[in-house]
């Protein structure tokens, strides 16, 4: 492994250990020599990893007799990052993501109707089922985005596929991370399967209608989550 990747791997292991409670805030890490040996890396790589953790504010190195490297804060989890996304993204921006996604997906699915072959349809069907088979939210997000990206692949358009990849990266974790009400994989799968049928039967009007409704429902879920996280209960009297 190149040095930089090794340093990343160490950062990852230490972060996970803190996340799992194996290392607690306030605890001192073993001395550098011991850590080097534990991870099987040279001193330079280890110092690079510790430097990265320091920059992220997870550890702090103190000098002196009672010095050493200490864990000073919990690393941010994915859920924290996603909650921050909801708090910092406005409803108008979420609506706008949906607008762009609708434009991309409508053309993608129409082209897929014209251009997909039998084996594309089989693959899409398999990917649609993979979503309901995914057992955790962490697995549902990639299963969902994979299905949509493969639609663009079946449409034979690298540019639409790239646009779809970008849009999926922007929102799929937000959709499936259960912050308030969990998103239902069975309904999403049923919608995906219905889309595959429309593609298989070359029904572009129907496929477009289905994909637009599908995206609208996703966006509504994101907006509901935003309203719940950002503006709490409706019983609050005007907060101005």
């Amino acid at each position: 492994m190149p040095e930089i990747e090794r340093a990343d791997a160490i950062v990852d292991r230490i972060t996970k250990a803190i996340g799992l409670g194996l290392l607690k805030v306030g605890e001192r890490l073993p001395p550098e020599a011991a850590l080097s040996e534990m991870f099987g890396v040279g001193g330079a790589t280890l110092r690079e990893a510790l430097g990265d953790l320091r920059e992220r504010g997870i550890v702090e190195t103190r000098r002196g007799r009672s010095g050493g490297t200490f864990v000073v804060s919990q690393p941010r989890t994915q859920t924290d990052t996603i909650r921050d996304w909801f708090l910092s993204t406005s409803i108008s921006e979420i609506r706008d993501i949906g607008d762009e996604h609708s434009a991309i997906a409508a053309t993608t699915v129409r082209l897929a109707c014209e251009r997909a072959e039998a084996h594309d349809v089989d693959r899409l069907q398999e990917l649609a089922r993979a979503l309901v088979l995914a057992s955790t939210p962490e697995l549902r997000a990639p299963a969902d985005s994979r299905f949509h990206i493969e639609l663009a692949v079946a449409a034979q358009s690298p540019r639409l596929a790239n646009a779809e990849i970008r849009l999926q990266e922007e929102t799929v974790q937000q959709l499936w991370t259960p912050l308030t009400v969990a998103f239902d994989p069975e309904q999403a799968t049923a919608e995906h399967l219905e889309l595959v049928r429309a593609v298989a039967q070359d029904q572009p009007e129907k496929a477009q209608k289905l994909v637009l409704e599908h995206i609208r429902r996703n966006i509504f879920h994101l907006i509901d989550t935003k309203l719940t996280l950002g503006y709490a209960a409706r019983s609050i009297q005007d907060g101005q």
């Binding site: 108008s92 921006e93 309203l227 503006y231 019983s235 609050i236 005007d238 101005q240």
Partner: peptide, 17 residues
């Protein structure tokens, strides 16, 4: 900005059932 307006007036709108 629309995104700046949202947190300013949403609490009033959210108070409507």
């Amino acid at each position: 900005r629309i995104k700046d307006l949202e947190p300013l007036i949403m609490p009033s709108l959210r108070a409507i059932p």
